[in-house]
Amino acid sequence: MKDEAIVSLIFEKNELGLLKLADKYEKLLIHIAAGILGSRSRDIEECVNDTYLKLWNHIERYDMDKASLKTYLKVIIRNTAINKLRDLSRREERELPDDISDIAKYYIDQSQSVEGQIFSKENIKQLNKVISSLGEKDKELVIRKYFYLQSSKEIAKATKMTVTAVDSRISRLRNKMKQEFAKEKESCYCMQKGAIYE
């Protein structure tokens, strides 16, 4: 079944739409959630169900022109899994899964201390610009590492690079992005200042 048909079924609140959606994308969603949460099947299942529920409840927000349904689902499941990861860090007993990636572990450890960090829409715009300016390979590395929270080992396997090469390239990219981000921020600030003076 085509995405348009699935979306229109969900829009009409027809449960068949969810069934078709699950048929088409469940494997992908499980794969993404498992990459972030490790092999905790209960959490993964919850994550996937939450994704369906979010889509069901907010289908009117979905804009077909902006992105495909698959991309939209990818973003939802990723954010749901990250929230789940944050919940894991909040749990008192902290039963951390053993098989999650190093970056996910780091996120669990650090997310509480940097929870207060806020970022505006301007920041997101700047980040969008910075990421779109990256080359295809660099973009893949950044997305895999910081969007899908894949470990360096997994990235190395997927991109046919060595783990050390991946790590060093990502570190260099982060520095580059930091500089670009600062530049973007500065230019934005100057433009805002200019607009105020005008």
């Binding site: 902006k66 992105a67 973003v75 780091y106 940097v114 997101i124 969008n128 990421i131 910081y146």
Partner: peptide, 21 residues
């Protein structure tokens, strides 16, 4: 890194038209 992870949650969907997964 944490900020980057959090910010990427709100990235433009057009930048995520990948098929890595």
């Amino acid at each position: 890194e944490i900020m980057l992870i959090n910010m990427l949650g709100e990235i433009e969907p057009s930048l995520l038209q990948d098929d890595y997964m």
